[in-house]
């Protein structure tokens, strides 16, 4: 006789096998390598020399600006995306005619069909001297500088990450039972109030998911600050590109990367705990 539970256990093992192997070799192993590098030294001609020292970590304050920028622009960009994405998602999920809905949703994704690099180049032109500033000049507003400013970086972030924020919110609003709003109105709740009492709390899981996606990806962003920030706004991502590709200081780069991973782990788990506590817990997980 075949032991049923044993057979099941085997099957589970077999099915999870490929995932486990992938996880170990593609995620854990590189991270271990980076961690080992971070305790090493830079050889004179660049690259890595084995060693065990904390020097790289003591050297971190030299990149303080990058950390500061990342840790302020990532939440700021997330918040800005949220504020822009929410009304859009709300409009798509609740207001728009069923006929147009699909078309508009596709329009939200279309930019994703070309690479962020190319789209960011377009913004260089738009925000640069021949773009919006020259239009402003035309109507009499002179001397406006947009490119290579923090504003340009935020614009780039909102543009690049908007779909990631719109979709989770759209989904949570789309599945919101419209009868709940009728029930609220029936009980004396004016429409504006019922938005804050019903719609907003019930779209919380979507907002939480969107914010997390955008925040995590923003922590590693380097393209937008490099292109639109003109070297003034410098993220950790830029530091890493510089350290690994330009100055070939692998150990220091590794230390910066490991620190970034730790910061992310801490903030994301804090955030998860906060968001989980707030959400209803019913059948709505964060992702």
């Amino acid at each position: 006789m075949i032991d049923d539970t044993n057979a099941k256990r085997w099957l589970t093992g077999v099915l999870l096998g490929p995932t486990t192997v992938w996880f170990l070799f593609m995620l854990v192993l590189p991270l271990v390598v980076v961690a080992i590098f971070s305790f090493g030294m830079r050889s004179p001609e660049g690259g890595y020399v084995a060693s065990f020292t904390f020097d790289q970590y003591f050297n971190l304050p030299s990149r303080l600006a990058a950390f500061k920028n990342t840790l302020s622009y990532a939440p700021l960009g997330t918040l800005a995306s949220l504020l822009i994405a929410y009304p859009l998602a709300y409009y798509l999920a609740i207001k728009v005619n069923q006929k147009w809905k699909l078309l508009l949703l596709v329009l939200v994704i279309v930019p994703f069909w070309t690479s962020l690099l190319i789209r960011t180049y377009a913004w260089i032109f738009l925000l640069g001297g021949k773009g919006i500033p020259s239009l402003l000049e035309f109507i009499g507003i002179e001397g406006v500088r947009l490119i290579n400013t923090p504003f340009a970086v935020i614009v780039g972030i909102i543009y690049g990450y908007l779909p990631l924020m719109v979709f989770p919110i759209y989904i949570s609003l789309e599945k919101l039972d419209k009868r709940l709003l009728e029930a609220a109105a029936d009980l004396g709740c004016a429409p504006a109030r019922s938005f804050f009492q019903i719609t907003l709390p019930l779209s919380m899981p979507g907002m939480a998911t969107g914010c997390m996606l955008v925040f995590i990806l923003l922590m590693g962003e380097f393209l937008i600050p490099a292109f639109l920030g003109g070297g003034k706004v410098f993220f950790i991502g830029n530091a890493l590109v510089d350290l690994f590709l330009q100055s070939r200081n692998w150990p220091f780069g590794s230390a910066v990367a490991i620190t970034l991973v730790i910061i992310m782990l801490v903030t994301v788990s804090l955030y998860m705990r906060l968001a989980m506590g707030k959400s209803t817990g019913q059948d709505e997980s964060l992702m």
Partner: peptide, 17 residues
């Protein structure tokens, strides 16, 4: 609706989750 002196029990209750 929010200004009418009537209240309703909805078919599937529509309780706030």
């Amino acid at each position: 609706p929010h200004k009418r002196p009537v209240n309703m029990v909805f078919q599937h209750y529509a309780l706030f989750p």
